[in-house]
């Protein structure tokens, strides 16, 4: 339980912070965070959480590293091309900090595995790039009472919010209700994304996880933070919980996670759901 001298030195800049201290660093060491997506958002998030000394980090992604990823997915490097993203990310995280245990899950996260995946973790990071996954993660975390950080990025814009169960604050579905209709919103493959946007927003997700674990400050619950890099403007918008929300409302109709019929650009509600 006691830190070695090397660990004290490694984490000294954390321990010096009154809001973290020795206690907070121990909490980080004992914490388990699951990052869903080892791409643009998952890259900075996984690096900062590993560097911070989060004891156990799960990372889920089914893809391999592609040349077009490297413009923003900084956990992967050119020699990693073709490698499973979760293995590439694990290697980089453990190179940054060998103290960290990394559990790689090379899988698409879906309704049939998400509850098992999140069960062992204290905090979940939605670092995915499509609406079906975002709604799936939201629903599963609400149903399993897991706190999580939502984020989304496109072009020069990003957004972020945090959900913590048991608070009078909205979930992602309270805010957005349902995925947008097919092709209403382009994917980042079609639309483009400025690389550092992933760095900004993924780092904010890591910060929310660290704050949740250590208890420092106030989380981004009850608010949506938006960032417009072209205007260099952040906006923090207060958003109430929606009593009629299909998953966290007073009479929920979603009682277990479900998959939207995939293809992020071809969304249909599943059968049996209004």
């Amino acid at each position: 339980m006691a830190f070695t001298n090397d660990q004290l030195e490694r984490y000294s800049r954390h321990i010096l912070l009154q809001e973290v201290g020795v206690k907070g660093q121990k909490k980080l060491q004992d914490a388990k965070v699951l990052i869903i997506g080892a791409g643009g958002l998952g890259s900075p998030c996984s690096l900062y959480l590993a560097a911070a000394g989060v004891g156990t980090i799960g990372i889920a992604d089914a893809d391999e590293v592609d040349l077009s990823n490297l413009q923003r997915q900084i956990v992967h490097t050119t020699p990693d091309l073709g490698k499973a993203k979760v293995l590439s990310a694990k290697e980089t995280m453990q190179a940054v900090n060998p103290d960290v245990r990394v559990n790689p899950y090379r899988t698409f996260v879906a309704a049939n595995n998400i509850l098992d995946l999140i069960a062992d973790y204290d905090f979940v990071i939605d670092a995915t790039d499509n609406f079906p996954a975002k709604f799936l993660i939201n629903d599963a975390c609400v149903l399993a009472a897991k706190p999580f950080s939502h984020a989304g990025i496109i072009r020069f814009q990003g957004q972020l919010m945090t959900y913590v169960p048991g608070q009078d604050a909205p979930c992602y579905r309270c805010v957005f209700q349902d995925p947008p209709p097919p092709d209403a919103v382009p994917t980042c493959r079609q639309a483009g994304i400025i690389g550092a946007m992933a760095g900004v927003i993924g780092s904010l997700q890591a910060l929310e996880a660290v704050k949740y674990i250590t208890g420092a400050g106030q989380l981004l619950t009850g608010h949506l933070l938006t960032y417009d890099a072209l205007k260099m403007a952040f906006r923090k918008i207060k958003i109430p919980r929606r009593k009629t929300c299909a998953v966290c409302g007073e009479h929920p109709s979603i009682l277990r996670p479900f998959d939207y019929e995939q293809a992020c650009c071809d969304l249909k509600p599943p059968e049996g759901r209004p």
């Binding site: 830190f3 001298n5 004290l8 030195e9 000294s12 321990i15 010096l16």
Partner: peptide
């Protein structure tokens, strides 16, 4: 590390 050791 001085202050870190005192905090510990």
């Amino acid at each position: 590390v001085t202050f870190v050791k005192v905090k510990v």
